[in-house]
Amino acid sequence: MTESTPTKAADPALDGPADTLEPPPARIHGWRAAWRELVKAPLTGKIGLVIVLVYIFTAIFAPVLAPYGETEVVGKQFQQWSSAHPLGTDNLGRDVLTRMIYGARNTVGVTFLTTCLTFVIGAATGLLAAAVGGWTDQMLSRIVDVLMAIPLLIFALLLLTIFGTSIPMLVLIVAVLESTRVFRLTRAVGMNIVVMDYVEVAKLRGEGLGWVMGREVLPNILSPLFAEFGLRFCFIFLLISALSFLGLGLQPPTADWGSMVRENAILITFGDFTPLLPAAAIAVLTIAVNLIVDWFLHKTSGLRDDH
């Protein structure tokens, strides 16, 4: 799981360009180099970063920020915006602002968890395929080919019908299906590293498979993986929201942005924008993550993957 946490993955990439600017430092301290990169970042990148930080803050401090309880019924149904309920109340008389805040925790939290699991599965199998090659690679690649031959949403719907809609199942199903994309990327970039001389040296030294995968190949493919993490996060976020919207993702009474739109959709036909706020929250976070990924890709001008 550590290879996919943003801070860790960002470091090697952020170190590189800074080194070329300052003549003497063989090794600038990681935090100072990171700070310098931040100051130099394009405006769009900064905006993206600030937005993501706000979301993370909201998710962590949800119980403190929210005026009411997550599932607490505090008034009549569909009340207008007022000082007591800044965004009104929903179809069961719960405070919309409160549920928006808890939604940040639930929706984004589940998405983040799923993305991490996706990367653990995808990167591990991808590295394995690249490092071992031969039959293992063939087997894994053909399995992934077949899994990718079915449209993702359709496959997810089929599996959810069979296994039912609980959160662990949702996370597992989406992670397995999405990990096929990570597998392909990891395998492709890993293949280029495996043929390097220093990997050969490590093998001759008698290092095991785990060392070759984790200590020789993985550190050298972190930067494309990090960019992919951002893009995958967006896709998984949209997929889980779509499933929740269809009533098959996070289940009530959990506050979740996708299902909030579904629960209150009736208000839209009266010309009210409130039910769309959770959807707007989804869109804003996705755009912000995309902006950061664009900035990062521009920096490392590494591998670009548009789907």
Binding site: L238, F245, G258, A265, P275, A279, A280, I282, A283
Partner: peptide, 11 residues
């Protein structure tokens, strides 16, 4: 591409 389809639809 960052917006959920249902967001665009309801807008």
């Amino acid at each position: 591409i960052s917006m959920p389809e249902f967001f665009i639809a309801y807008m």
